[in-house]
Lab assay of single mutants.
Amino acid sequence: MDSLVVLVLCLSCLLLLSLWRQSSGRGKLPPGPTPLPVIGNILQIGIKDISKSLTNLSKVYGPVFTLYFGLKPIVVLHGYEAVKEALIDLGEEFSGRGIFPLAERANRGFGIVFSNGKKWKEIRRFSLMTLRNFGMGKRSIEDRVQEEARCLVEELRKTKASPCDPTFILGCAPCNVICSIIFHKRFDYKDQQFLNLMEKLNENIKILSSPWIQICNNFSPIIDYFPGTHNKLLKNVAFMKSYILEKVKEHQESMDMNNPQDFIDCFLMKMEKEKHNQPSEFTIESLENTAVDLFGAGTETTSTTLRYALLLLLKHPEVTAKVQEEIERVIGRNRSPCMQDRSHMPYTDAVVHEVQRYIDLLPTSLPHAVTCDIKFRNYLIPKGTTILISLTSVLHDNKEFPNPEMFDPHHFLDEGGNFKKSKYFMPFSAGKRICVGEALAGMELFLFLTSILQNFNLKSLVDPKNLDTTPVVNGFASVPPFYQLCFIPV
């Protein structure tokens, strides 16, 4: 009986604490739906499609509103004006990374994606500088992407125009580009180590996009005490870190300090320079996690976009025909596509942009946080508050993009057929937390897609009208449904 009384008292205290925290903070924060004790607004949000729920709530509470995930307040920004004001106009104040408990377990605050403060700034600055020195957006990395595009075309030829699921092959190409940047090595598509790495990356994007992960991140005790797919994700990350550590040891034994070959060499050189400046942010643990982040951000996002792009091109054969006509006119058949071609191919450029806009790969991006107490639109948001960005509300804005739910390359073309930029184009987020590999991803999408369409016609196994382009999961990332196609050599 005594234990029951204690339990009831504990629960009562928890409920009172929950109510007090919510009521004391709500006077400062933007308005929002009334949260339930302990669980907050979790029942009012469709976990399978958070973005749709945010759109519905914005119609009631406006472009800036507050939700509670458990006891934790989260300020939501919906629509271009609110997102721009926060991420661009007040970029420094909104540059923090929001709480992501599962990532905390995986990387302990290291790396480039989930770190904060001085650690994040130094690692991000170093990573950007190193990638630029190796030619991100310049010639040397373009050579690597072109080489991988040629290998991709050869792998597709091996399908002999038979029906195939493109998931694996389209994942190999961007993964190999990242391998060449980090390890100075590309792998054969049949290499077992490479296959294991690909498998872990593919599993992780599916797990991260599941409703279960949303629950884990908002009720963090689940991570330590409950079984579930989150444990598989943590094991996959541990596998990748151990693999990278092996490569780091190989580099330490063979590195030429006067001739760095890749990202690992550059990081080890930085560690050597910083060894007298303790404590340094440049450690082996930081290198492991930064490399894992580059793999995660640079492989599955690009391969998922490529997979979605081919599905949309199957669905819209008239678009595919126009792209192939432009390829034939500008590039021809006797040389590989290059980035200089893009400025002469406005329709193809528009298609690449429209694919990214339409699929809305990361509907709410990753959570941000404010780095200080900030007054925002007459609300006071306390330091450390998590900020949720609705990228969907920007990419699918119906004023900027008429009929935003329709796939239409003319969203990025003017009346004369010239490519038209849009400030609403934010597939990689915006501001200080914009994806480090934005330029690389854009290069890969253009070169891989043009190389495929230069060499193959795409054949659907069903009537294009019957192809479903609805994402199968739409949590962290929008993942396309399973499909097969035939690559018919031109």
Rank of each mutant, 00 (worst) to 15 (best):
G111Y: 03
N133R: 15
T450F: 00
Q22A: 10
F226W: 07
L131W: 05
F114T: 12
E326V: 01
V153A: 01
G417D: 10
A321V: 12
D89A: 04
P427D: 06
L16Q: 01
N474R: 14
A321G: 12
F94G: 05
F183P: 00
I222V: 13
E281P: 13
H276D: 10
S51R: 15
L440C: 02
K375V: 07
K84N: 13
V462G: 09
A439R: 06
N202G: 09
K52L: 11
H276Q: 10
R144T: 14
Q214Y: 13
N289M: 12
C164A: 04
F114L: 12
F482W: 11
V5Y: 14
N455T: 07
P63Q: 07
E354F: 00
H368M: 09
P337V: 10
L17M: 11
H251A: 07
M345V: 02
H316E: 07
T302W: 01
G442N: 15
L445P: 01
P480S: 04
T371S: 11
V6I: 13
E122P: 09
S162E: 13
M198Y: 11
V352L: 13
K118G: 11
I74L: 09
Y379S: 05
V355K: 00
R125T: 09
S180G: 07
V472I: 15
C338R: 13
T301E: 12
Y243M: 14
P464K: 11
Q278L: 07
I47C: 15
G32D: 00
L388R: 01
S23M: 11
N455M: 05
E438M: 05
P317R: 06
F134P: 09
N277D: 08
G117V: 05
K235P: 02
K52R: 13
L90S: 09
R329A: 09
Q193R: 09
K72V: 05
T386W: 06
G332V: 04
R150T: 09
G40V: 00
P402T: 14
L11F: 13
I331V: 15
L87W: 03
R357A: 01
S12V: 12
Y189H: 04
R105G: 08
D397G: 05
L268A: 05
I50N: 06
L197H: 01
V330N: 09
N133T: 07
F126A: 05
A106V: 13
F168A: 09
P101Q: 08
V8A: 12
Q454G: 05
P471D: 02
T283D: 14
P337W: 01
G171Y: 08
R357I: 00
F94Q: 04
E122D: 14
Q214V: 08
L128P: 03
K84T: 13
R26Y: 12
C266V: 13
F69N: 04
H368C: 08
P471S: 08
F376T: 02
A439E: 15
D89G: 09
H184G: 12
L461R: 07
D408V: 01
Q146D: 04
V352M: 07
L440T: 03
A297T: 06
Q340V: 10
D191Q: 05
I222G: 05
F425L: 03
R108L: 10
E444G: 03
V5K: 01
R329F: 12
Y347R: 01
M271G: 05
K200N: 10
P166S: 03
L208G: 07
D2R: 02
D165H: 01
G296T: 15
F282P: 03
L485I: 09
L7G: 08
K273R: 12
Q193P: 10
S140F: 08
T305V: 09
N403A: 10
E203S: 09
H276M: 10
Q252C: 10
F69L: 12
D373Q: 07
P363T: 08
S365H: 09
A477N: 14
L156R: 00
G298C: 11
F183S: 04
P337K: 02
S23Q: 14
V472K: 10
D408W: 05
P404A: 06
K275P: 09
D373G: 04
E328Q: 13
E203P: 06
V6P: 08
K432Y: 15
L234H: 15
E438K: 05
S24F: 09
V355R: 00
M426Y: 07
S24G: 03
H396M: 15
V177A: 03
E104R: 13
L77G: 00
G332Q: 04
T392L: 04
E104D: 09
D262A: 07
D468T: 07
L156S: 00
F263V: 06
M426F: 08
T283F: 05
T55V: 14
R105T: 06
G98Y: 15
N236A: 02
F295C: 04
C10E: 03
K383Y: 03
S58Q: 10
F110G: 14
R333A: 08
F419L: 06
D408E: 06
N236D: 05
V490P: 05
K84C: 11
N217G: 12
L306A: 02
V479M: 15
F412W: 05
L458I: 07
R21D: 03
N277E: 13
Y243W: 14
E400R: 02
S429L: 06
Q324A: 08
S365Y: 15
I99K: 15
I434S: 15
K432L: 10
M345K: 02
E354K: 00
T283A: 05
N202S: 12
T304R: 13
L19E: 01
G117H: 11
V8G: 11
L294A: 01
R150I: 09
D89W: 05
F168T: 10
E300L: 10
S343H: 15
Y80Q: 06
M129I: 13
K315R: 07
P33G: 00
L461T: 13
P427C: 15
R97G: 08
C266G: 08
L388W: 15
V237Q: 14
S115L: 05
P211S: 11
K185Q: 15
G70R: 02
E203D: 14
H251S: 06
V76Q: 01
C179L: 03
L156V: 06
N277S: 12
E300F: 14
K138Y: 08
K459G: 06
L453V: 08
G171V: 06
F219A: 04
H368N: 03
F428G: 05
R157I: 06
T320P: 06
V330T: 11
I331R: 01
M240G: 02
S460M: 04
I112D: 11
